[in-house]
Amino acid sequence: MRQLYNFAFFDEGSKREIRRAILKGIAIPGYQVPFASREMPIGRGWGTGGLQITLAIIGPDEVLKVIDQGHDGSVNAVNIKKLIVATTGVEITDETARASLIQSRHRIPEVPLTAEQVLVLQVPTPEPLRDIEPRESETRRLHAEADYTGAWLGLFEQVVRYGNMTTGADHPVLVNGRYVMAPSPIPRFDNHKLNNAAHLTLLGAGREKKIYAVPPWTSVVSLDFEDYPFAPETFEGIRCRVCGAQGVYFDELTDPDTGEVFHQCNDTSYCQTRREAQTRREAQT
């Protein structure tokens, strides 16, 4: 009983259904569209939502970049890339600017994306209200009525208790002035990259069976208070030990020899590009 897989793994009927959900998501920015999430050959919770979007929209001429934790070579990124290449044969790149389709977990690249690019984010928990309301039927009603009291109260309680909002990644955002959305666990540092962006962002949650989208040039505002404004992670006075970059998102590392804490660009492709440019400049001088 041998079975040959179709281009991009799915049968065409499945692709069509997923594309319909994507189109609906684009039409209603920030609204979570339920879809019949398929079981995939990688773990459910390991990026199957993003993977299903990627496989539903990928074409043979696509140039694909997959990152996990900002890194093209991270184990899960490699694993997802292998599967996509095995079923499509598309070209792979690490270089952000060259990619036409970027699937990512937990990061938006440092290099601003263009109108020609599509960003697919993997989402573990698409429901921004899940912490305050475990029931899906109830959270759907809250979204329908734009009742976001719970989301605000959650942030307010943090202010009361800890002196400020203490969200880590996945700080909730208001999309197009209507839907509160979980931006997937990107760090707060990346939230602004969704606001009025040139590129299309598609978000897929496989296990939770939801697809949603931020179309280009759509307002995405992080929830905050007038007296407690939203603020990204700070890396004040920190430079990348490898390329010297400042004002980017950093990985915190420990030197195995000295025990000293140092930092490196989290976006490895960005770091690499900078170092190559530096090497070229040094060669010229």
Binding site: G43, R44, W46, Q69, S74, N164, G168, P187
Partner: peptide, 27 residues
């Protein structure tokens, strides 16, 4: 779904944990 989400905890969470670390330190 259960095994997928539980096993995903083995994936790297460097970025989100860095963000959490940042928040915890500030308090």
């Amino acid at each position: 779904e259960a095994t997928g989400f539980i096993s995903h905890l083995k994936l790297p969470h460097y970025v989100t944990f860095q963000s959490k670390l940042n928040s915890v330190r500030r308090t």
